[in-house]
Amino acid sequence: LCSSTSLHHELSSPSKKPDTELSLRIFLDMGFTDTQAEQLHDTVSKLRGGSAAKHVLSTLTALFALGLNPSSVLKLLDKCPELYSVKEPQLQQRIDNLRKLGLGEGSIQRVVAYYPQILTVPVKTVKTAVGFLREKCLFTVQQVTDILRDSPAVLTENLGQLEYKFQYVYFRMGVKQGEMVKSRLFRFTLDEVRHRHSFLERRGLYQTPDKKGQTVILNPKLDSILSVDQNTFLTDVALASAEEYDVFKRLMAREWHEQEQEGGRIEAD
């Protein structure tokens, strides 16, 4: 940690100069290979406006400070070029906030590599989303941390959509928070969840539990419904053919579209 901080200081002064001075040399010094450095240089010089390029070094420094190596840094910047232009204090604030939310060194590194967009999300937005997960969905602190680690994209999802998805799984499928976290529910779109669930339900293989939480049949676990590819889902869980499921999804899309048009959507209160 100490060494990366010093690296940060050493490099912060050139970043204030015009971007043309961001030479290959600096990138090489940071540990990029020749090709990587050239590639980076190329990208940076194409960035519009000085303000964009001016944060390049602080961004790189921050990413290295998370323990990422040059090639993964390059890869994630490729996925999310917006990161080049995030201002240093904001970036640091965001990282600190994620740490506060329980993402330890290893986790934060993996999350950023897998979903770099997380560092473009303002702290305020993260706080709102976390507040929502805690208060509206009653996830525990630890569960929220797990959600952020497994499904960071949850932070950028529309809260209305998120609430609808949660309520669908909670009320309609009768699944509790622990199961939701275990199955990495928030990695899946609402449509994916609804397609698989309603297909099973209409086939008679899934039931909404009654008030006492009881069902006549044994429901498959959310995890076994979601965390498998479509073929496995069809052969192992739904016991159906791909043709049937394909027609079913198209029928559902039309059914739901028409319900929405009629304003038949369940209102959040």
Binding site: F199, R202, R203, G204, L205, A240, E244, E255
Partner: peptide, 18 residues
């Protein structure tokens, strides 16, 4: 369920869909 056996789920989902 008894009459159609394994076929029933496919018939069921069809009956419940458009």
């Amino acid at each position: 369920g008894v009459q159609l056996g394994q076929q029933w789920p496919s018939v069921r989902v069809a009956l419940l869909s458009e």
